[in-house]
Design a protein around this nucleic acid. Structure first.
Length: 197
DNA sequence: CGCCAGATCCACT
DNA sequence: GTGGATCTGGCGG
């Protein structure tokens, strides 16, 4: 499968978030190829979206979201976690898609080593901070270009996941945000047959 | 199982 | 100084 193009990412975050479902997130590191199929995403679009970090405008932290689509926006939160996002839409339109969960595929043993205490349990990659641990992603990869294979971090194309298998719900962790942002259905999940990752 | 507190630090006010 | 796009272990039912 081909690496997703700049054009794919240079669309509104809502479309990108929806279409990323089923695509393969790939991390090449230390001679290993770690990958998993994206099963959950969230869209954050623009300064008017109070759930989006860019609602405070352009700062050193949010500047990456104002840049070219297809780059990684990786930030630190809660004093211990890194979250992985993909910059979307046109330059000067601050928006991104948070990757919240993957179904592990290649390099499962390596990924498990990166998550020593929980790797044997169910749902070991169904959270935005879990997958960054497994894929060894942190601030060092912030701003990295996902359209270049040489980055060692990119997403591969996949057939579009049918609407029948897609669920849209409100985004997670925005409980203190006002409506409509708190409840707007900008979170997308692939319907699973009861089986968690 | 569900609920809750603790961990731990950075960006922004 | 404050609070956060989270996760985990422990405790109670």
């Amino acid at each position: 499968m081909a690496i997703l193009s700049r054009e794919f990412y240079a669309r509104p975050a809502l479309e990108v978030a929806r279409d990323l479902l089923g695509c393969r997130l790939v991390r090449q590191i230390n001679q290993h190829r770690l990958s998993g199929f994206i099963t959950e995403t969230e869209a954050y679009q623009g300064e008017t979206d109070l759930g989006c970090h860019a609602h405070v405008g352009r700062t050193p932290r949010t500047a990456i979201m104002y840049g070219q689509a297809g780059h990684a926006y990786i930030y630190f939160t809660y004093g211990m976690h890194w979250l992985f996002n993909v910059v979307t839409d046109l330059v000067e339109v601050p928006s991104a898609v948070l990757i919240r969960a993957i179904m592990p595929d290649e390099g499962q043993h390596e990924m498990a080593l990166n998550r020593p205490y929980r790797a044997h349990k169910r749902g070991w990659l169904n959270g935005p901070a879990k997958l960054t641990q497994a894929l060894l992603l942190n601030g060092d990869q912030n701003g990295c270009d996902l359209c270049l294979e040489a980055s060692g971090l990119y997403i591969e194309n996949a057939p579009l996941t049918p609407d029948m298998q897609v669920i849209a719900t409100s985004r997670v962790g925005l409980n203190s945000e006002p409506e409509p942002w708190k409840s707007i259905p900008w979170r997308f999940l692939v319907k699973q047959d009861g089986a968690l990752n």
